[in-house]
Write a protein that binds this DNA or RNA. Structure first.
Ligand SMILES: Nc1ccn([C@H]2C[C@H](O)[C@@H](COP(=O)(O)OP(=O)(O)OP(=O)(O)O)O2)c(=O)n1
Ligand SMILES: [Mg+2]
Length: 651
DNA sequence: GCGGATCAG
DNA sequence: ATGGCTGATCCGC
């Protein structure tokens, strides 16, 4: 952004920061980074010309291979909404357009409108500093649901250009418009212009678009003419090289503050420099980092859509919940926070039917030091109490401590091991109201309705849904089998768009989105996504059924449909943890408690309260021995590669 | 598997 | 005085 008085911004931020605990922590981290960079430089110094020459030959060979596989045949768009949260707020309150405004609060800002950015106000800047930079700054509270809805409006448009588009965060998406472009005879630039017009007309929001032969380039390009602009990288080798050569490394997704600093220390500022210094890079960095830098310097990137998680797959690696609060130090206070977090997390997990084996406690001290303590349990857990147990133990081991943030993360999820072509896994649908709303009930055929309620309540007369007995020890479920072959793709012809239905459950669903839909007459199930891959897998190892608390019942329509068939199933409530367990799982569940008990009896290892080893050492270093062979087993390292691989996949 | 760290949005 | 939250990944151990 032009017109920003950068010196003033730096000065103000520094003046407000210099005495804060946060700033001191930043300095501590910075010192470590510099230390690592220092070690790298020493290593670089020791390289002989012969070694460098050898590295150069290796790199050049790889470059030749990569060039040979360069694919310029596809046209990608990366769409990124402008000042997204702020723009949505402006749409609702147009008077905000002319004033500097930030979404967030005094402690933290999510984003700011372009008026506020003129003053240097940015995402992830604390509000009180922003206020000093821009005394007239207006704060608007964040309303995540509002942005989510706005996001859906944009995505409905993206779908017209690429039905399989990949949505990353709320405000961006990758579209492969090759087909659209071919069919319409329009160039990438024309498609981008049409899309931007459409988005603006329909949503009253503006976006910026990058057009390029791969995702990486499209992503970078979308940032070139922000806001409300577009930029094309032509699908031609020379154009691509020209574009990346001039690119400052910091613009490359995956190269952040630290990596930038590190490369700057070697006078590498642009992607052209990256190429010029390829021998040095090869000698200093891990194979995966080198590979990433090489791709970057060549302007190579993925040109495939993300893989859709199969049915029964979690669709994510972890789920977490963390909160910042006023400094706390008593165990009772901290345990209270832990309980709240565990409850919150358990509710979130229930929405997707997740169960995890690893529970991680995260603490941030008042000095902003972060500690994480992970526990891997003998069984998969999902309830608040199960999550809480290992957390409390880990917490106790950290006492005494003064904390400003606590978080809990659950990972290592249970995933249905579904083999391709296997029959659909059965699922549970709780009886009664959640399957049919009042309105939809009128649309259900009487027979089906009867059959359904029969199956639901059947012999379990003692429990009427949602009333009377609020704490039954036995419940009978409708067991619904939701059609199809798991792993197969449902033919498009079976699409039954616009059938009113309800979202009844989460977990591995037909399209991997997590949402399972059943229509009003209870004859068809399906998903909203574009990639219905057949049967849906619901349930967890303990087959915890869907419950009203878990996952909102939403109005939606089926993209595709599959037959539903019913049977009934009875579960009993575990007296120890409250989980619902079917007869078949009884033994497994008891074993699980046994294992937990045994673990609880194991004495807690005496752990020093002082922070663990603060010098990780070794990072950024590359123990060179193998002459540059890039085998998976090589253990050379440096933290650059951390993020790199992630983005190799994504972009 | 654990802990520290980087990155994105 | 006041510095968020969620998710992913990597490496050395
Ligand atoms: N540290 C951050 C960065 C972003 N966001 C949120 C607010 C943004 O509105 C949204 C999208 O992020 P972008 O990086 O795309 O930023 P904007 O869309 O706000 O601005 P731009 O016009 O630069 O894209 O994500 C956030 O909460 N915290
Ligand atoms: Mg944006």
């Amino acid at each position: 952004m032009g017109g920003v008085d950068k010196e003033r911004v730096k000065r103000v931020v520094f003046e407000m920061s210099k005495n804060s605990a946060h700033f001191k922590n930043e300095q501590r981290k910075q010192a470590k980074v510099e230390e690592r960079i220092g070690r790298l430089k020493v290593q670089a110094q020791k390289l002989t010309p012969q070694e460098l020459a050898a590295q150069l030959r290796l790199m050049d060979q790889r470059i030749a291979d990569l060039e040979a596989s360069r694919d310029l045949s596809r046209t990608w768009l990366h769409v990124d909404m402008d000042a997204f949260f702020a723009s949505v707020e402006e749409r609702d309150r147009p008077e905000l357009k002319s004033q500097p405004m930030a979404v967030g609060g005094k402690s933290m800002i999510s984003t700011a409108n372009y008026e506020a950015r003129k003053y240097g106000v940015r995402s992830a800047m604390p509000g009180f500093i922003a206020l000093r930079l821009c005394p007239n700054l207006v704060f608007v509270k964040t309303d995540f649901n509002k942005y989510k809805q706005a996001s859906e409006e944009t995505r409905a448009i993206f779908k017209c250009f690429d039905p399989d588009f990949d949505a990353g965060s709320l405000d961006e998406a990758y579209l492969d418009v090759t087909e659209y472009s071919n069919k319409s005879g329009l160039s990438g630039a024309q498609v981008a212009a049409i899309l931007r017009d459409r988005v603006r007309e329909v949503t009253q929001l503006t976006c910026s678009v990058g057009v390029a032969p791969n995702r990486f380039l499209a992503k970078v390009a979308s940032d070139m003419n922000k806001p409300n602009g577009q930029y094309v990288v032509e699908s031609e080798r020379h154009a691509v090289k020209t574009f990346v050569d001039a690119l400052p490394i910091r613009k490359v997704p995956g190269i952040g503050k630290v990596t930038e600093q590190t490369l700057h220390a070697f006078s590498i500022h642009t992607c052209h420099d990256l190429m010029e210094n390829r021998a040095l890079i090869s000698a200093l960095f891990s194979p995966s980092s080198c590979s990433f830098f090489l791709d970057t310097a060549l302007g190579l990137g993925s040109n495939k859509h993300w893989e859709v998680p199969g049915p029964g797959e979690a669709g994510r690696k972890g789920i977490s919940c963390e909160r910042t609060f006023k400094a706390l130090s008593t165990q009772a206070d901290l345990e209270h926070k832990a309980r709240e977090l565990a409850a919150h997390l358990a509710a979130d997990m229930a929405k997707e039917g997740l169960k995890g084996k690893t529970v991680t406690l995260k603490l941030k001290t008042t000095a902003f030091e972060v500690r994480t303590r992970a526990t891997t349990l003998p069984c998969f857990v999902s309830s608040a109490n199960e999550i809480l147990k290992p957390v409390l133990k880990a917490l106790a081991a950290e006492m005494p401590i003064e904390v400003r943030l606590m978080g809990i993360r659950v990972s290592s999820f249970y995933e249905e091991r579904v083999t391709r072509g296997q029959c659909a896994i059965t699922t549970f649908v709780k009886p009664g109201k959640q399957c049919l709303s009042q309105r939809d009930a009128s649309q259900a055929t009487p027979e089906k309705q009867e059959e359904f309620e029969d199956g639901c309540q059947g012999d379990a007369k003692d429990q009427t849904v949602g009333q009377a007995d609020s704490n039954p020890s036995v419940q009978t479920f409708k067991r619904a089998r939701l059609g199809g072959e798991v792993g197969s793709v449902n033919p498009v012809e079976c699409a039954r768009d616009s059938i009113p239905c309800q979202q009844v459950a989460h977990a591995g669903s037909h399209d991997g989105s997590g949402a399972v839909l059943i229509d009003a007459d209870l004859t068809h199930s399906g998903c909203q996504g574009q990639k219905d891959r057949g049967g849906c897998a619901l349930g967890t190892p303990q087959n915890r059924p869907w419950s009203p608390a878990a996952g909102a019942v939403q109005e939606c329509s089926l993209q595709s449909s599959l037959p539903v068939s019913f049977s009934s199933c009875t579960q009993t409530k575990c007296s120890r943890c409250g989980a619902w367990v079917s007869a078949a799982e009884q033994q497994e569940h008891e074993d699980y408690h046994l294992a937990l008990d045994l673990q609880a009896e194991t004495p807690v290892a005496v752990r020093p309260t002082a922070p663990q080893r603060l010098a990780p050492g070794g990072r950024w270093s590359k123990k060179r021995k193998s002459g540059g062979r890039c085998s998976k087993s090589r253990r050379s390292s440096e933290s650059i590669s951390t993020t790199l691989d992630a983005f190799l996949q994504k972009r």
